[in-house]
Each structure stands twice: as structure tokens, then as C-alpha cells.
């Protein structure tokens, strides 16, 4: 009898999840789209904290004047975000002279990294509705049967939708308990949270995990299921040259990094696709003392780094 009640509840929850509305995404960042349209930058520098912590946009603008630059470094973003940003924000806004996309390790062939679960919400800032190409690449490949099964089960019983219904209620209750019941008080509380937990206040090691979860498989196996070919096609179609910049990690900054078979295969692939690659993993001018604890440049060296980058890699800004 007890087991029957339990099973009935499980079934009811699955049915409820299936009829619940799709989980919401963050509103599209129209301000960014407007800014790009107005600015019509010559160079767009795209990436995650590797860009955010490396470049001072004003300094870069000053150094490259009269060319205009736009630094789009979004902490924690990965290929799904970059693909959508290019497709929906950067390329529709105009035709920059070049797009520089910064990456490290195997990020370019990890389409599901930071694109599912709670990260899905943030993708809304650069999404115009659900993207079919992205949706297809989010499904784990058949060589990962357990992950694939989990993905399919998530489609059959999308509890993420129930979670999306409950989470705002929890947050609103917490805000109410903390005395922020109205609009102004809530905005003040949000500003306080943003200020206290801004990237500048974090311990360096906590900015981002030192190592991303290892993706199974070799480059040739991974590239087909990744968003890299789509990113290349988008820029090709728009007639915008793309430069991929492989940045070094702190660990590598302490000594020369060995190139892996994956790196060699990626390089060969990009050469075949006629995409420029700048490999910065062994640049002598990138001294270890410029780094904070993790893979990031220490905040006090942001301007210095920007200057050094332009001095040493002026050729990419052409």
C-alpha cells in the first residue's frame, strides 16, 4: 500500500513536470546589442574570465586607436554562450574586422560545459528563443551511454521545470525574511550581493575551477559533436575573420607546456578550415608573476597585460 502511494506520487510528479512551463531564461541583453550596433567595433574580443581578467577595454581602445574594440569577457561562459553571442549579438550588429575568441584546454570541443542546469538561465542573455543547433549538441553522444540516458530521462521527466517554478518562491521568501519585501529594498539587496560577491572580491583560486571536467575522447571524435564547426561557419558566412587564441594556464606559466595530441589535432583542423590560431601557451613575455593564483591575470596587472599583449601580438589586430 505504502509503495503504491510512493509510486503514484512519482508518476504524478512526472506528469506535472511534463505539463509545467519551460524553465525561464534570462532576458535577452538588448543593451549589449544596441551598444554593439552603435559602436560598430573593429575588433571583438570574446571569451570567459580569460578575457575578463586580461583586458582593460579603455587601455585596449587607447592602444589601438583609432580602431574601436569591444571586450566581451563573460566569466564562466563556454562555447554555447560564445556561439549564441556571435550568432545573435555580435554578427547581427555589424561586420567587425576580426573576432578574437580566447579559449583554454578542451573548451572548444565541450559543448555541454556550462550550458545545462543552472547555466541555461544565463544563456538567455544572448538567445533569441531555443536554438536547434545548440539543442542538438547538448545531447550527449552515444559513446557516453549513461550520460545519454540521463539526458533522455531528463526529457521524459523534466523536473528542471518544477525546480524553475519553486526557485523564485524560495528566493522571494528569503528576501522577505531579510527585510527586502518591496522593489526598492530588493534592488538594494541585489546591488549589495553583486558588490560583495563581485569577481574582484573572490579568492583567486575560487574564480574558476583549475581544471575543467575531462571530456572523454580524442579531438577527432569530439569536434563533430562540438559547436566549433558552427562557430567557424557563422563567421565565414558573415565574412568576418576569426582568430582563436589558446591561452596558457597558471600551471603552464611556471614551465613550458607540452603540446598534447589533442592540441596538435586541433591545430591541424583549424589549419584545414583556414582559421588563424594564436597559441599563447609558451609566450615568453607572459611571465608567471603576472598571474594571480589560478589561471587569471592578477587584477593589478590588467593594464600592463593589455599593453604587453598589444606590443607582442599587434599582428592579430589587422
Amino acid at each position: 500500500m505504502g509503495l503504491g502511494v510512493f509510486a503514484a506520487a512519482a508518476l504524478a510528479l512526472i506528469l506535472l513536470a511534463r505539463v509545467a512551463p519551460l524553465e525561464p531564461q534570462a532576458p535577452f541583453d538588448s543593451a549589449l546589442a544596441r551598444r554593439l550596433r552603435k559602436q560598430a567595433p573593429d575588433f571583438v574580443v570574446l571569451g570567459n574570465s580569460m578575457v575578463q581578467t586580461r583586458f582593460d577595454e579603455r587601455e585596449l581602445d587607447r592602444l589601438l586607436s583609432p580602431a574601436e574594440t569591444c571586450v566581451l569577457g563573460v566569466g564562466g561562459s563556454k562555447t554555447a554562450y560564445w556561439y549564441l553571442a556571435l550568432k545573435n549579438v555580435v554578427l547581427p550588429a555589424g561586420t567587425p574586422r576580426r573576432v578574437l575568441l580566447f579559449f583554454r584546454r578542451r573548451e572548444l570541443t565541450s559543448p555541454r560545459e556550462k550550458a545545462t542546469g543552472p547555466f541555461r538561465y544565463a544563456l538567455g542573455r544572448v538567445s533569441r528563443g531555443r536554438d536547434r543547433v545548440l539543442e542538438a549538441k547538448l545531447a550527449p553522444p552515444a559513446r557516453e551511454p549513461v550520460e545519454r540516458l540521463g539526458y533522455e530521462l531528463g526529457r521524459i521527466a523534466p523536473f528542471v521545470r518544477l525546480h524553475a517554478l519553486a526557485e523564485p518562491l524560495v528566493l522571494a521568501t528569503a528576501q522577505g525574511l531579510a527585510g527586502a519585501r518591496r522593489g526598492a529594498a530588493r534592488r538594494r539587496q541585489q546591488r549589495a550581493l553583486d558588490r560583495v560577491f563581485s569577481t574582484d572580491n573572490l579568492r583567486n583560486a575560487d574564480l574558476e575551477p583549475a581544471s575543467a571536467p575531462a571530456e572523454k575522447g580524442d579531438f577527432d571524435e569530439l569536434v563533430g559533436a562540438s559547436l566549433l564547426p558552427n562557430i567557424i561557419e557563422l563567421t565565414e558566412r558573415a565574412g568576418v575573420p576569426l582568430t582563436l587564441v589558446r591561452v596558457r594556464t597558471r600551471r603552464a606559466a611556471d614551465g613550458r607546456r607540452q603540446r598534447s595530441a589533442y592540441d596538435r589535432d586541433l591545430d591541424a583542423y583549424l589549419a584545414r578550415r583556414k582559421v588563424e590560431l594564436v597559441d599563447m601557451t609558451n609566450e615568453a613575455w607572459e611571465r608567471p608573476e603576472l598571474y594571480g593564483e589560478g589561471d587569471h591575470i592578477a587584477p593589478r596587472f590588467k593594464k600592463t597585460y593589455t599593453k604587453l599583449f598589444v606590443q607582442n601580438l599587434k599582428r592579430v589586430f589587422r
Binding site: 500500500m1 505504502g2 510512493f6 506520487a9 542546469g117 543552472p118
Partner: peptide
């Protein structure tokens, strides 16, 4: 047994709505 069934069902509903995504 019945109490256990209802308790289990309530907990399951709690998980479905309030589980952490991280």
C-alpha cells in the same frame, strides 16, 4: 507502511521541486 508511503511521496515531491542544481 502507509505513513511511510506518504512520507516518501512528500519527500520525493520536495526533491522534485527544491533540489539544488549544483
Amino acid at each position: 507502511g502507509l505513513i511511510g508511503g506518504f512520507l516518501g511521496a512528500a519527500l520525493l515531491a520536495g526533491i522534485a521541486f527544491f533540489y539544488s542544481q549544483a
